[in-house]
Design a protein around this nucleic acid. Structure first.
Lengths: 191, 191
DNA sequence: AGTAACTCGTACACACGTGTTCGACAAGAG
DNA sequence: CTCTTGTCGAACACGTGTGTACGAGTTACT
């Protein structure tokens, strides 16, 4: 009868540790096993299954957590003023997140259906799209290509930069500048 | 004593079928098993191991074959004249290949060390780099970013386009034009 | 025609990951 | 303090993929 509405403090700590470990472990290796994640969390493998029914559910929870954490930081970015400057600011802030959790994204893509992925990204993606739309309206971004394509290009270039860093041909410091310089040029209306 | 220098005609046919099936199967599913590949080739799984010691070696051979096939087609592309036009022509020809075998590339990345991947791509990549270099020398491509980065951007955008097609937000027909329009703008020197 | 090369199916050994069950034990909540 | 909740390790069942071994049958060279 005396149902316990909230989880016990003990359990909350475990869940916390597991999610953090999952983000970290999957960030390094996109197909890390549940055992590895449990070990990284300082927790037994069985305990993980006590809180998450599947590996898939665990990955989804980790993904959601990582995105939510990043999203709150992104919302602080000022998107007013010249869209080009605003885009540069947004890239500066987004880039770190994309670079750190790109392996986690791959893990999610392996396990989750595409629509789930899209649903998780809906929040951050929307702000980006609105900014691009505004730039198009104001004539500083090109309109001969669709907004969806321009956003996709931005994503591609960021992921490409992450690959270049992994390959050792680019340093993390240079990346943001390169991305901004490239994307801004790509978004400029053709003369 | 009477050593047979060349493989028997029988065996050559099998190897051929296996490689073709591997390219096709891995092109659809980057982690297709040896069984699947063998079945697709109309051959027993054991026969595959008779010609390729590992799954990794098989993937490498398939990758090499796919690249060589594509490379010979790419060599026919005329790279003289305005570097922008030449780049457009090269993209037109390269795009199909990248789009078709992107899943195969993923398979290769899963199994082969990065330096092997790079080594396999060395041939096609070199022509591309030389073209970009020439464009930079002639002042039509920007020099404030490294050649390596510009080439990486081109790759990223092509792979991104492949993703967009897979997601159903872009048709294969539109792709080449979008890629060219985007990359040409990205390569233009900043005013 | 004879011989070596090749192919096939089945079966085995092995490794790895997932998800579940069990019983003993610790820790939080009332 | 007591009882519920959570944790732990070990073990099990299951599935999947890799690579190897064997024996019998078939195909191509000479």
């Amino acid at each position: 009868m005396t149902a316990t509405p909230t989880k016990r403090a003990d359990a909350q700590r475990s869940i916390e540790a597991i999610l953090e470990a999952a983000i970290s472990a999957l960030g390094r290796n996109s197909d890390a096993s549940v055992s590895e994640i449990a070990k990284a969390a300082g927790v037994g493998r069985v305990t993980v299954y006590g809180h998450f029914p599947n590996r898939a559910d665990l990955v989804e929870a980790a993904m959601r957590r990582a995105i939510d954490d990043g999203h709150s930081g992104l919302e602080a970015v000022d998107l007013s003023g010249d869209p080009r400057d605003a885009l540069a600011r947004l890239i500066d802030s987004s880039w770190q997140l994309v670079n750190q959790s790109r392996s986690l994204l791959i893990a999610a893509q392996d396990v989750l259906p595409p629509r789930k992925i899209r649903e998780l990204h809906a929040g951050p993606a929307e702000r980006m799209e609105r900014l691009v739309e505004r730039g198009r309206d104001e004539g500083v971004f090109r309109t001969d290509l669709s907004t969806a394509w321009l956003v996709a290009v931005l994503h591609s270039v960021m992921h490409g930069a992450a690959d270049e860093i992994a390959a050792g041909r680019l340093t993390a410091d240079e990346a943001a500048g390169h991305i901004t310089a490239t994307v801004l040029a790509a978004f400029t209306p053709p003369s």
